[in-house]
Amino acid sequence: MLSDKEKERYSRQVLIPGWNQEKLKQANVLVVGLGGLGSASALYLAAAGIGRLHLCDGDRVELSDLNRQMLYSESSLGLLKVEEASRRIGALNPSVAIVRHNAYLDSRNAAEIIAGCQVIVDGLDSLEPRFILNQESVLRGIPYVYGAVQGWQGYAGFFHPPQTACLACLLRPGAFKPDRVPVWGVTPGAIGLIQAGEVVKWTLGQNPSLQGRLLIYDGASLSFEIISVEKDPACPVCSRA
């Protein structure tokens, strides 16, 4: 049941046809990685009124994060991201319950971190933990909202096997990764907000636009391309699930 304050807070978005604020209030959403992608998605999911946000990151805020990680400010330097993110989100929308995981996601803690969540948002910055997250999402039948950025370019997708392909149908380990990934704020901002939008659509019971598809965003030429990602019959993850 929405309070009077919540009714007022969300009064503009409930005007959108098909909107159901109660569904958002009941939702449990996990954001893994609170960098550029996670900053954008977590802030907008909180503003939209997702009832319970599970936040996972083991990192501390550094000066070089502040060009793109909008959850933090100079007063955050040296502090745990998960604590600073909770504080910032709490200030934005105190009605959102926060579950904190001060940890880097790995194969030992993934099951515990994901437990109780209905959808996973990828805010990670390397491929290895993404494959762990993907594997857990396939095993548990939880949708995985993929995002990744580099320079001016970003990818986003909504994977939910067995209805769709999974991340391992798209990518394989062994890809080249630079020592320091170049990135500026607008790229993870754009992709993170698209991820948040897909989470909200799914939570509202609508079909996410990127279900089984991949958005390829190129900010340098300002192009958006969406391709279909078919299931790989030889996928090492979802073909065996």
């Binding site: 960098g35 550029g36 910055d125 370019q153 993870p188 969406i226 391709i227 279909s228």
Partner: peptide
């Protein structure tokens, strides 16, 4: 508009777009 993995065998005249690894967050 369809994903093609690197084991795909192209045909004459195919126009194929290559995408780089993108790993940051």
């Amino acid at each position: 508009g369809q994903l093609k993995r690197l084991d795909y065998t192209p045909s004459e005249g195919d126009i194929i777009t290559l995408q780089p690894p993108v790993s940051g967050g």
